[in-house]
Structures are given as C-alpha cells and as structure tokens.
Design a protein around this nucleic acid. Structure first.
Length: 273
DNA sequence: TTCCAGGTGCATA
DNA sequence: TATGCACATGGA
C-alpha cells in the first residue's frame, strides 16, 4: 500500500488494505470517536483525525511518525491476506474485513485497557476508559490524554470503583504499582513466550489479556487471543473444547506467525455475522 | 428476571 | 495440574 508522509499529515492511497472503520471497530482499540465525516483516534497523549477521500484516506496529526507506526503502514497486508486465504475458514472473514490493520498501540495504555476488558462488553469498556481519560488524563485542549503511570499512582481503589471498573478496580490499583512504562518498553526485545509469562504475572492479566497486549501493543503475530467469541467459533467449526489454553495452542500451531492477523479477521467477522 | 460481555484470582484436591 | 466459583456493571 502506498502512502505519503507530510509534516502534519499522512495520505493513504487505496482502500484495499486500509479501512479505518474496520480497523477501529474490530475490538483491538477503545479510544476513538466516530463523527459524521471522520474518525478521531486517540493514543497515549496524541490525536489523529482520519478522513476518507475518493482515493484513500487523509490522516491529520501533529505526530505523523507516531501514527505511521501506529497504523502499521510499513507492513504488507496484501501479502498477509494472500497467505491466510489458503485457509477456507478465513476466506469470508478476509473478504468481510480486508481493510483491518493490527494497530501498534501504546504499551501502557494497551495493558490498562485490556485489564478493563476482562469479562466485559466493548461499549462499557469504552465508557470506563473514557471516564478514566477525562478524570485523570492531561487536558490537551480538545481531548484528554490517557493517564500516565504517575497519574494513576495518585488515586486510590475507590477512584477505579467510581469510574465503573467493577471488580477490576483492585487489579488496576495493584498493576500500576507493579509496572511502569519504561519496563514495558524494555521487554520489547524478549521472545514471545518469555514476555507472556512476565505479563501474566501482573495483577488482572491472564492468558487472554496477555495475548491482547502482545498482539495489539508489542505487535507479536504468533499469539491467538481466545475470548468467549473465539471459543464459540472454535466449538462450532473445529471441535468441542472448553480449555482455552488448548484452543489457543491448536490455533497458533495452525496459523504460526500470522495467528494474530487470522484472529482479528475471524473476531470481526463472527461478531457481525 | 436471567443471561452475557474480548476473564482473572483464588481455594481446593 | 485442573476444576469450580466469586467477582461489578449495564444492556438485551
């Protein structure tokens, strides 16, 4: 996919491998807003305005380098889709959500967001995270940044209860005391399985949340997050299994380094069909 | 009213 | 190692 990066914008040429609606609504990200003519995409302390044009998209932002990486613009999704199309189970999902891109999101924000996501629905996850931003994140004028670790350290458990986090309030209170942004960054160089163990050791992080952070934050393709939707799909199209870790291992064995991409095409498809 | 949502932690055997 | 239950909240 061709794109041009300017001083305060990125222009995307073509829509086959980039669809902003699909990319934002496939459940990998919670901090965005749909307007009549554009999408506003918030990440950490940054903002981008994405508008569809007749030949592609314009991404207006003060941080084009950041969003070039965020939208994973250097990766050839045509090649990924071609490789995955050999699996019959993925053919319709790829046709349906062919414009999905796996975002490379801020690590700390991804960790906190997916702890909130556990046993929760997407609408309420967004609600909780919006309240978190507005009550604690730095005022950037037209929006609020995602709170930093230091900002999150300044509040008590009750704060998380009050924004509606439910029983995850205790996990959030604990996890910000266990980890900081720099440590998460330093873990980038670790192999997937080692990194996964470190994430699972954190409060509120189990196998599923760890896989989401690995995929949507660290950009690790060799993981397959298994939630209730994927489990239902697996039981319908593969075999009856209630052990999610086994389901995960079977699927990663099948899709290898492209597991994460396969997972997103499937997840987006089964939720809408 | 009951079920469900991008599950995890903890006790128990 | 594996199984079972509790856990907040709000929409369907």
């Amino acid at each position: 996919m061709r794109f041009y990066k300017g001083k305060d914008y990125i222009e995307i040429f073509g829509k086959d491998d980039f669809n902003i609606k699909q990319t934002l609504e496939c459940g990998q990200v919670f901090s965005y807003q749909e307007n009549e003519d554009c999408f506003l995409v918030y990440s950490a302390n940054k903002k981008a305005k994405v508008t569809e044009t007749y030949k592609g998209y314009i991404i207006k932002t003060d941080s084009p380098d950041y969003y070039e990486n965020y939208f994973d613009l250097q990766t050839d999704y045509g090649a990924i889709k071609k490789a995955l199309s050999k699996y019959e189970i993925l053919q319709k999902p790829i046709q349906f959500g062919g414009g999905i891109r796996i975002l490379k999101q801020n690590l700390f924000e991804t960790l906190i967001s997916f702890i909130v996501s556990a046993n929760n629905n997407i609408k309420r996850i967004q609600l909780i995270l919006n309240r978190l931003r507005e009550k604690l994140g730095k005022d950037m004028g037209t929006y609020h940044a995602f709170p930093t670790r230091d900002e999150l350290l300044s509040v008590d458990v009750k704060f998380f209860t009050d924004i509606g986090a439910g029983y995850r309030d205790k996990y959030l209170y604990s996890v910000v005391r266990q980890i900081d942004e720099e440590t998460l960054e330093n873990w980038k160089s670790l192999p997937t399985n080692e990194l996964r163990k470190k994430l699972i050791a954190l409060s509120g992080v189990g196998p599923k949340v760890a896989d989401c952070v690995l995929l949507f934050g660290y950009g690790k393709g060799d993981v397959f997050p298994v939630d209730t939707w994927i489990q239902k799909m697996y039981n319908k199209f593969y075999e009856n299994l209630d052990n999610r870790e086994k389901i995960r291992n079977n699927l990663t064995r099948q899709f290898g380094e492209l597991s994460g991409y396969a997972q997103q095409y499937l997840f987006y498809y089964i939720r809408d069909n």
